[in-house]
Design a protein around this nucleic acid. Structure first.
Lengths: 249, 249
DNA sequence: ACAATTCCTGCAAAAAACCGCAAAAATCCG
DNA sequence: CGGATTTTTGCGGTTTTTTGCAGGAATTGT
């Protein structure tokens, strides 16, 4: 097998699997590991692969790693925030959960928007209160260290007593079978009552969380009206969700 | 599984869940916990994650620290905060108002202190929640734009239902004739019920506010147990206050 | 205060990388 | 074609990296 042929094969495997190990390549192509190693070195020098201890990674793999953005997926979240804001009209009463996506939403609100925001997320409330035309209601209770939102019976009772126009949930997992799910019991309880206290429910998620699920169920798909990700709403991945009556944005 | 691949996976999980535990990762990836620990250590050293006992946290969650831009009279307020902290013992339940002096108090709390803090001040609650051993209760209601504290009937009712060990008030004006006074009606109402719901009341003020008064009265001198300023407690300015039974610190 | 986790340190085995060298293969050139 | 040169490849020995494990210290939760 020719050298260039071999390297082309390695690149091909990289594109398929996003990763290769030297030992596996050596076995498969039946050349010594030293040869593979030299190949990988060349591919790395010409910028066609990323060499790591034990093998190599595809270039697309490092895009996430080297993103100097301190907040993971910040651009994606800002895009999601902009889409979400298009749903908010003047004089609406809005209920929101916590999470970094919601914080991004809070920061991106136009200064002209006049609305009432209700939340138990301390950082979100702080952001909302920086907007001059927005009335902010904080939901009180014990503050969870992990999520910085208020959790407990008081918070749940308060949310139950509401019936707001629209509710934005930053979610951790959603799939067709289980609906929205989470891994924190307290947070899940809160989100559950939030969906019940809103006319419209909007789920915000970066695309990585689509088609994943977690142990604690929050609500089925049919409780959700809108799903917002950073992807194009026409993406075929969303077809099963659309069939369940969800509007993609 | 390659080492760098594994670390990328950890980061991925971290960015989805905002936190991961070493034991869970060890089970999921099927490597020893020591390996996970070393991975987390490397990720922490390169600033891609925050290592904590038992696992790691996403960077985005540490972004909630407020920029401590220049606060007027910061050194004085730090001194006041240190004096105030000497009054807090383990397992106490503490009620605090808002204001920059209280924020300074919140930042200066020792990490070993174990106590419950209750407040309607959003920035203060956020600071409290960064302390691992402190339980935080947020008081909910409408958030005042000026002071970033919750005001209204709900907040007042909630405070009235309490009887805490000690209450710290950041105050705007105090003199012998009028006691503590303020210029914001809502804030004054809150502080008034706070004094009534506490066994001990501590007033925090930089010395400029001593012997001044404002339109809305909060409580007379006799409702106050301690007065803390940046000055020496033996200062003769304080003699009239001491005569009213207040302990200077 | 006590039991259970988790962390750290040193160590040893396995895996991978590196280095130099030499044989084999390909290329070049008169 | 023949010989010199370059490239490629594999191999042995050494160094570095990675990983798991055992113990004792530190931390956490109850």
């Amino acid at each position: 097998m020719l050298k260039s042929e071999r390297q082309a094969y390695i690149l091909h495997q990289l594109n398929i699997h996003n990763r290769v190990s030297s030992s596996w390549l050596s076995e498969t192509i039946k050349v010594s590991e030293d040869t593979i190693r030299r190949d990988l070195q060349e591919l790395a020098e010409t910028g066609k692969a990323i060499k790591v201890h034990g093998g190599a990674l595809s270039l697309s793999f490092s895009e996430f790693n080297l993103s100097s953005n301190h907040v993971y997926g910040k651009n994606e979240k800002q895009l999601i925030a902009r889409k979400a804001i298009s749903l908010i009209k003047n004089n609406m009463v809005v209920l929101t959960s916590g999470g970094t996506t919601i914080i991004e939403l809070a920061r991106s609100l136009p200064h002209t928007l006049k609305a009432t925001f209700i939340s138990g997320s301390i950082p979100a409330v702080l952001e909302y209160s920086n907007h001059p035309n927005i009335d902010v209601i904080a939901i009180g209770d014990k503050v969870s260290k992990n999520s910085k939102i208020t959790i407990g019976a008081d918070a749940i009772a308060k949310i139950k007593s509401l019936k707001v126009d629209i509710c934005f949930l930053g979610i951790n997992a959603i799939d067709v079978k289980h609906g929205i799910s989470d891994d924190d019991w307290d947070v899940a309880q809160l989100k559950k009552v939030m969906t019940e206290s809103s006319q419209k429910v909007v789920a915000l998620a970066i695309s990585e969380k689509i088609d994943t699920f977690q142990p604690i169920s929050i609500c089925p798909l049919k409780s959700i009206d809108y799903l917002i990700t950073e992807l194009d709403p026409g993406n075929p991945r969303f077809d099963p969700y659309k069939k369940n009556g969800i509007t993609l944005i």
